[in-house]
């Protein structure tokens, strides 16, 4: 992209400024309001949050306490527990769901266009319902008595009833289980679009080279879909590190902190105990971790992405 090098931009003077505004002023008018709102509602809070994370925040007076908040957190057992929960949740959901998505797309791809549209729509449909709605439904499905649907189904196969969310052993797993069913629609659509973009001639060449179905999958489809996989991995990880609604609605972080995620802990510190400084520090650690992981994924994965 090239921007014009105007001779007027060389040195500042009132005349030059007037000419500059005449040339470009209206361009800035297009972004002025959105950018102003961005400054007020994103940049300003970001800076304030950063300052706050070094303070013991009070409504009337805030005390600057250096790295105390961060130090407290890094020595705090519950913080580490929530970190561990978040990581388990992420590792247990994101790759699994990408694989499910990939195989669904793989199966949809060869069928005819009309059926493709039907299945794309069916798989996407649950995604238009809110996180709260889904959490409420699953809360009811995971009901630990014999009226919970999950227990009914277990009963059909002769298994014992489970405590699901009510037990600290199974609560986190139950929340993960919920993500495996439904919610793959947008990923499927992305994969299908990317699969459609792979030149047919590659498969034809592979056919002539006597490649098997598996070999084509391994050597053509999967490597050429890497950009899509990378995109889904990064957005998936960012999303799952911030998981909140499910734990809030279904378990309130319990039992015994088994489902306390970082995002939930931030909420608790901020809006139940009003420890704004501590919560800000926590949020910054979360942001830091997310950015590091995203960059690492990008570095590691994109090194051999073929465009």
């Amino acid at each position: 992209m090239a921007a014009t090098v105007s001779e007027t931009s060389k040195k500042w003077s009132w005349v030059n400024f007037k000419q500059f505004m005449k040339d470009y002023g209206w361009c800035y008018a297009f972004i002025a309001l959105p950018f102003l709102l961005f400054l007020v509602f994103t940049v300003y809070p970001l800076i304030t949050a950063f300052i706050m994370s070094f303070q013991e925040y009070g409504i009337l007076e805030s005390k600057f306490i250096g790295f105390e908040n961060y130090k407290y957190l890094l020595e705090n057992e519950i913080f580490w527990k929530s970190m561990k929960n978040t990581v388990i949740y992420t590792v247990g959901t994101v790759p699994v769901n990408i694989l499910i998505t990939f195989f669904l797309a793989l199966m949809i791809f060869p069928i005819n266009k009309r059926s493709q549209t039907f299945f794309k729509a069916s798989f996407y449909l649950p995604a238009v319902t809110s996180g709260i709605t889904m959490s409420l439904i699953w809360l009811w499905m995971f009901d630990p008595t014999e009226s919970g649907l999950m227990n009914i189904v277990l009963g059909w196969f002769g298994f014992d009833q489970q405590m699901w969310l009510a037990s600290s052993d199974s609560a986190l797993f139950s929340i993960m289980l919920m993500t495996y069913i439904g919610g793959h629609g947008s990923g499927v659509i992305l994969y299908l679009a990317a699969m459609g973009g792979i030149p047919k001639s590659l498969y034809e060449a592979a056919d002539i080279d006597a490649a098997s179905w598996w070999s084509k999958l391994k050597n053509i489809t999967w490597p050429l879909l890497k950009p899509t996989t990378l995109y889904m991995l990064i957005t998936g990880v960012i999303g799952s590190f911030q998981v909140f609604e499910a734990t809030y609605v279904m378990t309130q972080g319990g039992p015994n902190f088994a489902t306390t995620t970082i995002a939930y802990l931030i909420y608790q510190h901020a809006f139940q105990y009003y420890q704004f400084g501590l919560a800000s520090a926590e949020a910054f650690i979360l942001g830091f971790v997310i950015i590091i992981i995203s960059v690492l994924q990008f570095k590691y994965m994109s090194s051999d992405v073929e465009y």
Binding site: T42, I238, A270
Partner: peptide, 17 residues
């Protein structure tokens, strides 16, 4: 690049604002 920052970071100052 602001899209990388999780919502929780700006949430508290936004709330106060």
């Amino acid at each position: 690049s602001s899209m990388m920052i999780p919502g929780q970071v700006t949430l508290i100052p936004l709330y106060i604002l």
